[in-house]
Amino acid sequence: MVWVRYVGGRLLALVLTVLVGSVVVFLVMKAAPGDPAVAALGESARPELVAAFRAKHNLDVPWALQYGRWLSGIARGDFGLSLTVASDRPIAGLIAARLPNTIFIGVMALLIAVILSLIAGTIAALRRGKLADTIATSLAAFGISMPDFWLSYVLILVFALGLGLFPAYGFIAPAQSFTGALYSGFLPALAVSAPLAAVFARTLRTSLLEAGNKDYVVAARSFGFHPAYVFVHWIFRNALIPYITIIGLQIRYILGGVVVIERIFGISGVGSLMVDGAFARDYPVVQACAVVFLVIVLSVNLVVDVVCSLLDPKRAR
Protein backbone atom coordinates (compact mmCIF):
# COMPACT_ATOMS: atom_id res chain seq x y z
CA MET A 1 0.00 0.00 0.00
CA VAL A 2 2.81 2.35 0.95
CA TRP A 3 4.33 1.51 -2.39
CA VAL A 4 1.26 2.35 -4.40
CA ARG A 5 1.02 5.66 -2.55
CA TYR A 6 4.67 6.48 -3.18
CA VAL A 7 4.67 5.71 -6.90
CA GLY A 8 1.23 7.28 -7.31
CA GLY A 9 2.41 10.47 -5.64
CA ARG A 10 5.45 10.59 -7.88
CA LEU A 11 3.32 10.05 -10.99
CA LEU A 12 1.03 12.88 -9.95
CA ALA A 13 4.05 15.15 -9.48
CA LEU A 14 5.28 14.13 -12.93
CA VAL A 15 1.97 15.06 -14.55
CA LEU A 16 1.94 18.40 -12.71
CA THR A 17 5.49 19.20 -13.82
CA VAL A 18 4.63 18.35 -17.41
CA LEU A 19 1.59 20.65 -17.18
CA VAL A 20 3.60 23.55 -15.81
CA GLY A 21 6.37 22.83 -18.29
CA SER A 22 3.92 22.85 -21.17
CA VAL A 23 2.58 26.25 -20.08
CA VAL A 24 6.11 27.65 -19.98
CA VAL A 25 7.01 26.12 -23.35
CA PHE A 26 3.82 27.48 -24.88
CA LEU A 27 4.24 31.01 -23.49
CA VAL A 28 7.91 31.24 -24.46
CA MET A 29 7.10 30.14 -27.99
CA LYS A 30 4.40 32.78 -28.18
CA ALA A 31 6.99 35.37 -27.17
CA ALA A 32 9.16 34.38 -30.13
CA PRO A 33 9.47 37.10 -32.73
CA GLY A 34 7.90 36.78 -36.17
CA ASP A 35 4.57 35.60 -37.40
CA PRO A 36 4.50 31.85 -38.14
CA ALA A 37 2.10 32.44 -41.04
CA VAL A 38 4.51 34.87 -42.64
CA ALA A 39 7.38 32.49 -41.96
CA ALA A 40 5.51 29.65 -43.66
CA LEU A 41 3.86 31.48 -46.54
CA GLY A 42 6.18 34.39 -47.17
CA GLU A 43 5.74 38.16 -46.94
CA SER A 44 3.67 38.50 -50.06
CA ALA A 45 1.04 35.85 -49.32
CA ARG A 46 -2.54 36.79 -50.04
CA PRO A 47 -4.55 37.76 -46.89
CA GLU A 48 -7.16 35.03 -47.36
CA LEU A 49 -4.42 32.40 -47.55
CA VAL A 50 -2.92 33.75 -44.33
CA ALA A 51 -6.34 33.65 -42.67
CA ALA A 52 -6.91 30.08 -43.79
CA PHE A 53 -3.44 29.13 -42.49
CA ARG A 54 -4.17 30.71 -39.12
CA ALA A 55 -7.48 28.92 -38.83
CA LYS A 56 -5.97 25.54 -39.71
CA HIS A 57 -3.14 25.92 -37.21
CA ASN A 58 -5.35 27.16 -34.45
CA LEU A 59 -3.74 30.61 -34.38
CA ASP A 60 -6.88 32.74 -34.78
CA VAL A 61 -8.16 32.42 -31.21
CA PRO A 62 -6.98 33.98 -27.91
CA TRP A 63 -3.81 32.50 -26.37
CA ALA A 64 -5.59 30.81 -23.48
CA LEU A 65 -7.84 28.95 -25.91
CA GLN A 66 -4.89 28.09 -28.14
CA TYR A 67 -3.16 26.57 -25.13
CA GLY A 68 -6.29 24.71 -24.08
CA ARG A 69 -6.75 23.20 -27.52
CA TRP A 70 -3.05 22.33 -27.76
CA LEU A 71 -3.06 20.64 -24.34
CA SER A 72 -6.25 18.68 -24.96
CA GLY A 73 -4.75 17.65 -28.28
CA ILE A 74 -1.62 16.34 -26.54
CA ALA A 75 -3.81 14.41 -24.11
CA ARG A 76 -5.33 12.66 -27.16
CA GLY A 77 -1.90 12.17 -28.74
CA ASP A 78 -2.35 15.02 -31.20
CA PHE A 79 0.43 17.62 -31.34
CA GLY A 80 -1.13 19.67 -34.16
CA LEU A 81 0.16 20.10 -37.69
CA SER A 82 3.66 20.93 -38.81
CA LEU A 83 4.07 24.38 -40.39
CA THR A 84 7.16 24.11 -42.53
CA VAL A 85 9.30 21.04 -41.79
CA ALA A 86 6.71 18.67 -43.20
CA SER A 87 3.91 20.91 -44.36
CA ASP A 88 0.56 20.12 -42.82
CA ARG A 89 1.49 16.65 -41.63
CA PRO A 90 0.48 15.74 -38.08
CA ILE A 91 3.43 16.24 -35.73
CA ALA A 92 2.42 13.22 -33.65
CA GLY A 93 3.11 11.03 -36.66
CA LEU A 94 6.52 12.66 -37.23
CA ILE A 95 7.47 12.08 -33.62
CA ALA A 96 6.12 8.54 -33.51
CA ALA A 97 8.28 7.64 -36.49
CA ARG A 98 11.41 9.16 -34.94
CA LEU A 99 11.09 8.45 -31.23
CA PRO A 100 12.16 4.76 -31.44
CA ASN A 101 15.41 5.80 -33.14
CA THR A 102 16.20 8.41 -30.50
CA ILE A 103 15.39 6.02 -27.66
CA PHE A 104 17.42 3.27 -29.33
CA ILE A 105 20.53 5.43 -29.58
CA GLY A 106 19.99 6.82 -26.07
CA VAL A 107 19.60 3.38 -24.47
CA MET A 108 22.54 1.99 -26.42
CA ALA A 109 24.72 4.92 -25.33
CA LEU A 110 23.58 4.43 -21.74
CA LEU A 111 24.40 0.71 -21.81
CA ILE A 112 27.85 1.31 -23.30
CA ALA A 113 28.52 3.98 -20.68
CA VAL A 114 27.37 1.70 -17.85
CA ILE A 115 29.51 -1.23 -19.03
CA LEU A 116 32.61 0.93 -19.56
CA SER A 117 32.19 2.74 -16.26
CA LEU A 118 31.55 -0.41 -14.24
CA ILE A 119 34.83 -1.84 -15.50
CA ALA A 120 36.90 1.34 -15.27
CA GLY A 121 35.42 2.58 -11.97
CA THR A 122 35.85 -0.77 -10.23
CA ILE A 123 39.40 -1.27 -11.45
CA ALA A 124 40.34 2.28 -10.44
CA ALA A 125 38.92 1.82 -6.94
CA LEU A 126 40.47 -1.61 -6.41
CA ARG A 127 43.88 -0.50 -7.66
CA ARG A 128 43.68 2.91 -6.03
CA GLY A 129 46.85 4.96 -6.41
CA LYS A 130 48.38 2.35 -8.72
CA LEU A 131 49.04 2.67 -12.44
CA ALA A 132 45.65 1.25 -13.47
CA ASP A 133 43.92 3.88 -11.33
CA THR A 134 45.98 6.70 -12.85
CA ILE A 135 45.20 5.45 -16.36
CA ALA A 136 41.47 5.11 -15.64
CA THR A 137 41.13 8.51 -13.95
CA SER A 138 43.16 10.23 -16.69
CA LEU A 139 40.99 8.61 -19.37
CA ALA A 140 37.94 9.83 -17.46
CA ALA A 141 39.32 13.38 -17.36
CA PHE A 142 39.87 13.21 -21.13
CA GLY A 143 36.43 11.68 -21.61
CA ILE A 144 34.53 14.55 -20.03
CA SER A 145 36.66 17.11 -21.89
CA MET A 146 35.73 15.88 -25.36
CA PRO A 147 32.73 17.46 -27.05
CA ASP A 148 30.63 14.49 -28.19
CA PHE A 149 30.07 15.90 -31.68
CA TRP A 150 33.80 16.26 -32.16
CA LEU A 151 34.35 12.73 -30.91
CA SER A 152 31.85 11.45 -33.47
CA TYR A 153 34.01 12.88 -36.26
CA VAL A 154 37.12 11.34 -34.78
CA LEU A 155 35.32 8.01 -34.61
CA ILE A 156 34.12 8.44 -38.21
CA LEU A 157 37.65 9.29 -39.31
CA VAL A 158 39.16 6.25 -37.59
CA PHE A 159 36.52 3.53 -37.70
CA ALA A 160 34.52 4.46 -40.80
CA LEU A 161 36.82 6.29 -43.23
CA GLY A 162 40.06 4.76 -41.96
CA LEU A 163 39.35 1.17 -40.98
CA GLY A 164 36.04 0.87 -42.78
CA LEU A 165 34.51 -1.08 -39.90
CA PHE A 166 31.34 0.97 -39.48
CA PRO A 167 29.21 3.16 -41.73
CA ALA A 168 30.06 6.88 -41.57
CA TYR A 169 26.55 8.05 -42.19
CA GLY A 170 23.01 6.76 -42.01
CA PHE A 171 21.08 4.62 -39.58
CA ILE A 172 18.96 1.54 -40.04
CA ALA A 173 15.82 1.86 -37.90
CA PRO A 174 15.49 -0.87 -35.24
CA ALA A 175 12.03 -1.65 -36.60
CA GLN A 176 13.62 -2.62 -39.92
CA SER A 177 16.54 -4.62 -38.64
CA PHE A 178 17.58 -4.81 -35.03
CA THR A 179 21.10 -6.01 -35.76
CA GLY A 180 21.37 -3.38 -38.47
CA ALA A 181 20.41 -0.75 -35.91
CA LEU A 182 23.00 -2.08 -33.46
CA TYR A 183 25.66 -1.98 -36.16
CA SER A 184 24.83 1.41 -37.66
CA GLY A 185 24.08 2.90 -34.24
CA PHE A 186 27.34 1.84 -32.65
CA LEU A 187 29.51 4.84 -33.54
CA PRO A 188 26.87 7.46 -32.63
CA ALA A 189 26.09 5.69 -29.37
CA LEU A 190 29.79 5.40 -28.56
CA ALA A 191 30.29 9.12 -29.17
CA VAL A 192 27.43 10.02 -26.81
CA SER A 193 28.55 7.51 -24.21
CA ALA A 194 32.21 8.56 -23.83
CA PRO A 195 31.67 11.63 -21.63
CA LEU A 196 28.95 9.77 -19.72
CA ALA A 197 31.15 6.76 -19.08
CA ALA A 198 33.74 9.17 -17.68
CA VAL A 199 31.27 10.79 -15.28
CA PHE A 200 29.82 7.43 -14.21
CA ALA A 201 33.25 5.88 -13.68
CA ARG A 202 34.40 8.76 -11.50
CA THR A 203 31.26 8.56 -9.39
CA LEU A 204 31.59 4.80 -9.03
CA ARG A 205 35.25 5.08 -8.05
CA THR A 206 34.54 7.71 -5.40
CA SER A 207 31.56 5.84 -3.94
CA LEU A 208 33.44 2.55 -3.90
CA LEU A 209 36.33 4.20 -2.06
CA GLU A 210 33.93 5.87 0.34
CA ALA A 211 32.02 2.65 1.06
CA GLY A 212 35.33 0.81 1.40
CA ASN A 213 36.35 3.16 4.21
CA LYS A 214 33.24 2.47 6.26
CA ASP A 215 33.28 0.63 9.58
CA TYR A 216 30.94 -2.04 8.27
CA VAL A 217 33.66 -3.22 5.93
CA VAL A 218 36.06 -3.71 8.85
CA ALA A 219 33.25 -5.50 10.68
CA ALA A 220 32.62 -7.74 7.67
CA ARG A 221 36.32 -8.52 7.50
CA SER A 222 36.32 -9.32 11.22
CA PHE A 223 33.80 -12.07 10.50
CA GLY A 224 36.29 -13.59 8.07
CA PHE A 225 34.20 -13.28 4.91
CA HIS A 226 36.08 -13.67 1.64
CA PRO A 227 37.37 -10.29 0.31
CA ALA A 228 35.47 -10.74 -2.96
CA TYR A 229 32.29 -11.46 -0.99
CA VAL A 230 32.86 -8.36 1.16
CA PHE A 231 33.44 -6.30 -1.99
CA VAL A 232 30.22 -7.42 -3.65
CA HIS A 233 27.82 -7.36 -0.71
CA TRP A 234 29.20 -4.58 1.42
CA ILE A 235 31.22 -2.19 -0.73
CA PHE A 236 29.70 -2.48 -4.20
CA ARG A 237 26.16 -2.88 -2.92
CA ASN A 238 26.37 0.39 -1.00
CA ALA A 239 28.21 2.26 -3.77
CA LEU A 240 25.44 1.29 -6.17
CA ILE A 241 22.98 3.84 -4.74
CA PRO A 242 24.97 7.02 -5.60
CA TYR A 243 26.01 5.40 -8.90
CA ILE A 244 22.42 4.88 -10.03
CA THR A 245 21.45 8.33 -8.78
CA ILE A 246 24.07 9.95 -11.00
CA ILE A 247 22.86 7.91 -13.98
CA GLY A 248 19.42 9.44 -13.48
CA LEU A 249 20.89 12.93 -13.31
CA GLN A 250 22.82 12.44 -16.55
CA ILE A 251 19.80 11.48 -18.67
CA ARG A 252 19.43 15.09 -19.70
CA TYR A 253 22.99 15.11 -21.04
CA ILE A 254 22.43 11.87 -22.94
CA LEU A 255 19.43 13.38 -24.70
CA GLY A 256 21.25 16.64 -25.30
CA GLY A 257 24.10 14.71 -26.89
CA VAL A 258 21.71 12.67 -28.99
CA VAL A 259 20.26 15.87 -30.51
CA VAL A 260 23.62 16.83 -32.04
CA ILE A 261 24.74 13.29 -32.88
CA GLU A 262 21.55 12.61 -34.82
CA ARG A 263 22.36 15.45 -37.17
CA ILE A 264 25.93 14.28 -37.70
CA PHE A 265 25.09 10.67 -38.48
CA GLY A 266 21.88 11.45 -40.34
CA ILE A 267 19.72 9.63 -37.84
CA SER A 268 16.08 10.50 -38.21
CA GLY A 269 15.20 11.14 -34.56
CA VAL A 270 13.34 13.57 -32.33
CA GLY A 271 16.52 15.61 -31.81
CA SER A 272 17.13 16.17 -35.50
CA LEU A 273 13.41 16.93 -35.91
CA MET A 274 13.74 19.63 -33.26
CA VAL A 275 16.82 21.11 -34.95
CA ASP A 276 15.04 21.05 -38.32
CA GLY A 277 12.08 22.75 -36.68
CA ALA A 278 14.39 25.37 -35.18
CA PHE A 279 15.88 26.17 -38.59
CA ALA A 280 12.53 26.31 -40.33
CA ARG A 281 10.88 28.26 -37.49
CA ASP A 282 8.33 25.50 -37.22
CA TYR A 283 7.10 26.46 -33.76
CA PRO A 284 4.60 23.63 -33.18
CA VAL A 285 7.30 21.07 -33.98
CA VAL A 286 9.85 22.64 -31.60
CA GLN A 287 7.16 22.92 -28.92
CA ALA A 288 6.14 19.29 -29.31
CA CYS A 289 9.73 18.02 -29.24
CA ALA A 290 10.45 20.03 -26.08
CA VAL A 291 7.44 18.44 -24.34
CA VAL A 292 8.49 14.97 -25.50
CA PHE A 293 12.00 15.47 -24.08
CA LEU A 294 10.49 16.79 -20.85
CA VAL A 295 8.35 13.68 -20.47
CA ILE A 296 11.30 11.36 -21.20
CA VAL A 297 13.58 13.02 -18.65
CA LEU A 298 10.90 13.04 -15.95
CA SER A 299 9.93 9.42 -16.59
CA VAL A 300 13.53 8.23 -16.42
CA ASN A 301 14.05 10.19 -13.21
CA LEU A 302 10.96 8.56 -11.77
CA VAL A 303 12.21 5.09 -12.66
CA VAL A 304 15.63 5.85 -11.18
CA ASP A 305 14.07 7.14 -7.96
CA VAL A 306 11.95 4.02 -7.63
CA VAL A 307 14.96 1.78 -8.26
CA CYS A 308 16.98 3.72 -5.68
CA SER A 309 14.28 3.43 -3.07
CA LEU A 310 14.22 -0.32 -3.70
CA LEU A 311 17.99 -0.49 -3.23
CA ASP A 312 18.22 1.86 -0.29
CA PRO A 313 16.18 0.72 2.71
CA LYS A 314 16.56 4.18 4.25
CA ARG A 315 14.56 5.82 1.47
CA ALA A 316 10.79 5.89 0.95
CA ARG A 317 8.76 2.92 2.19
Binding site: K214, D215, Y216, V218, A219, A220, R221, S222, F223, G224, F225, H226, P227, H233, W234, R237, N238, I241, L311, D312, P313, K314
Partner: peptide, 24 residues
Amino acid sequence: RELRGTHLAMVFQDPVGAFNPAKS
Protein backbone atom coordinates in the same frame (compact mmCIF):
# COMPACT_ATOMS: atom_id res chain seq x y z
CA ARG B 1 41.07 -14.68 7.19
CA GLU B 2 40.22 -18.30 7.94
CA LEU B 3 40.88 -17.63 11.63
CA ARG B 4 38.55 -14.66 11.75
CA GLY B 5 34.92 -15.49 12.36
CA THR B 6 35.87 -18.98 13.47
CA HIS B 7 38.58 -18.71 16.13
CA LEU B 8 38.86 -14.95 16.45
CA ALA B 9 36.03 -12.43 16.60
CA MET B 10 35.53 -8.80 17.49
CA VAL B 11 32.67 -6.69 18.77
CA PHE B 12 32.88 -3.09 17.61
CA GLN B 13 32.35 0.07 19.55
CA ASP B 14 29.92 1.68 17.09
CA PRO B 15 27.16 -0.86 16.44
CA VAL B 16 25.34 1.35 13.92
CA GLY B 17 28.39 1.51 11.68
CA ALA B 18 29.13 -2.20 11.99
CA PHE B 19 26.03 -3.33 10.10
CA ASN B 20 25.65 -3.25 6.32
CA PRO B 21 23.00 -0.51 5.93
CA ALA B 22 21.61 -2.07 2.76
CA LYS B 23 20.84 -5.44 4.32
CA SER B 24 18.39 -6.69 6.93
